[in-house]
């Protein structure tokens, strides 16, 4: 089992690049430990900004830094940065077109037992609805590295959500197919298309393996780019399949499922089933327990696929 979390990889990438790029600035809201950014603050204190527990300030300051040519990376728990500072993301980042990267750490139900205040089941919907805001949920540590190396090269704002704990690898070292804003096709099959994002990609990939044992062939898309959604990949996968399943660690409304359903409904109508967290406070438990309970694990996804293909 991999022991390196996606947030640690982000810190590694920023540490590597901050050596030569003095415009990289990391901001935290009393969250440097949770963000795995303590090494960055210790190594580059002159490129670090602490705002205290003040998410609106965190995002507003980031926008001001970007305005004078800096490349700010603002880290805060996804639950807070996606709601408490939502208006700063909308006005100061997206509307003012500033190069601010907002990183929602401990996303989804990472803070399992801490309750709904600490869950971010609405962040995809919230950020996707803002014009000029992009939304990325990388699936594993290797893809996280590719994504951040790509983000360092662009000048636009984006929201990136990562979870708290290390996740199992989807890819292998040295073999990480990645093209910015293009979904990665993990496998292809003509029975069912499974579109997943973030930490749901691994169980989707495992579900495809379980289905194959039963003679069911699945396409699995790693849709780390929820916005801009890779519509071409969705349409291609849906056209080749009898039904589509979406999987996300998010509310059933306004997230990946809604966006994929819109595309499939307009371009190539198929049955689309959205697997997501419920429209209710999430049951208490670890991420693993929560996913199993709501059918967001490999077994649950495979079961859903079998049922809709009956």
């Amino acid at each position: 089992m991999n022991k390196i979390s996606n947030r640690q990889v982000i810190c590694e990438v920023l540490l590597e690049n901050a050596k030569t790029d003095k415009d990289i600035v990391v901001l935290c809201s009393d969250s440097r430990g949770s963000a795995s950014m303590t090494p960055f603050f210790n190594t580059y204190p002159e490129q670090s900004v602490e705002t205290g527990i003040a998410e609106q300030d965190l995002v507003g300051i980031s926008a001001g830094l970007a305005k004078v040519g800096k490349k700010p990376y603002a880290f805060s728990p996804a639950s807070f940065v996606s709601t408490r500072s939502y208006e700063q993301a909308k006005v100061d980042c997206a509307y003012s077109d500033t190069n601010v990267k907002l990183i929602g750490i401990s996303g989804g139900v990472s803070y399992g037992a801490l309750g709904m205040s600490h869950h971010s089941a609405q962040d995809i919907a919230a950020f996707a609805a803002i014009p000029n805001m992009r939304v990325y949920l990388p699936s594993d540590r290797f893809q996280t590295r590719c994504l951040f190396e790509a983000l360092l090269k662009d000048q636009k704002t984006a929201y990136i959500r990562v979870g708290r704990n290390p996740v199992e690898d989807v890819y292998e070292e040295g073999n990480v197919p990645f093209e910015m804003d293009k979904a990665t096709v993990l496998c292809e099959g003509d029975d069912v298309a499974i579109v997943a994002t973030g930490e749901m990609v691994k169980p989707a990939k495992d579900a495809a393996a379980l289905l194959l044992e039963k003679g069911i062939h699945a396409t699995v898309l790693d849709m780390y780019c929820v916005k801009p959604l890779d519509k071409e990949a969705v349409i291609k996968a849906a056209q080749n399949a009898k039904a589509v399943i979406t999987v996300e660690e998010h509310s059933p409304f306004g997230g990946l499922g809604s966006m994929v359903s819109q595309v499939v409904g307009a371009a190539c109508p198929r049955k689309v089933v959205n697997l997501a967290l419920p429209d209710a406070p999430v049951i208490t438990g670890t991420s693993k327990e929560v996913f199993e309970y709501y059918g967001l694990d490999a077994k649950g996804i495979a079961k859903t696929a079998e049922e809709i293909l009956k």
Binding site: V25, E46, Q47, V49, G60, A63, K67, V68, G69, Y95
Partner: peptide
């Protein structure tokens, strides 16, 4: 015009970010 505004309470944090950036450089 440097920054978009309209919703109140945004300007001071943004200006703080600008001022920190100017000092950094």
């Amino acid at each position: 015009i440097e920054m978009n505004s309209g919703s109140l309470g945004h300007g001071l944090p943004v200006a703080v970010g600008m001022a920190i950036g100017e000092k950094m450089d």
